[in-house]
Simulated assay, not measured.
Amino acid sequence: MKEISAIEVQKRLENGEKLNLIDVREVDEVNAGHIPDIMHIPLGLLEFRTHELDKCKPYIMVCRSGGRSGQATHYLQSHGFDVTNMTGGMLSWEGKVE
Score class of each variant (00 low, 15 high):
D23R: 02
L13S: 05
A72R: 13
T84M: 09
G33L: 02
V27Q: 13
G66W: 06
T84G: 03
I35A: 11
G89D: 01
T50D: 05
E47P: 07
V30W: 07
L46K: 08
V30Q: 05
R64F: 13
Q77I: 11
I7E: 15
M1V: 03
H51D: 15
W93R: 11
E94Y: 12
S69I: 07
S78A: 07
N85W: 05
V97T: 15
L21G: 02
N85A: 13
F81C: 09
Y75Q: 10
P58N: 14
E52H: 00
A72M: 13
T87I: 11
K55N: 10
L43S: 05
V97S: 15
N85D: 14
I38R: 04
Y59Q: 11
Q10D: 12
H40A: 00
F81Y: 14
S92R: 02
G67M: 06
T84V: 11
V97E: 15
R64M: 14
P58L: 07
R25I: 05
I60C: 10
A32V: 11
I22H: 09
K2A: 10
M1G: 01
S69F: 12
E98I: 13
V30K: 04
F81Q: 04
L53F: 07
H34D: 06
L21T: 10
M1N: 03
L21N: 03
D23S: 06
H74S: 14
G88S: 06
G16Y: 08
D54A: 02
S92N: 08
G70W: 09
R64Q: 14
I4E: 02
S92C: 07
L53G: 00
V30E: 00
A72L: 13
M61T: 04
N15S: 13
D54R: 02
I35C: 07
K18R: 15
V83S: 07
K2L: 11
K57S: 13
K55T: 12
E29K: 11
M39A: 05
P42G: 06
M86P: 03
G88M: 04
S65N: 05
N31I: 08
K57F: 02
N31C: 05
K2P: 08
L76C: 08
V30T: 06
I35T: 12
V30S: 05
I7G: 10
M86T: 06
R12W: 02
Y59G: 04
T84A: 08
L43N: 00
G80C: 03
E98W: 09
L19H: 00
Y75M: 07
C63N: 05
E29F: 11
Y75I: 10
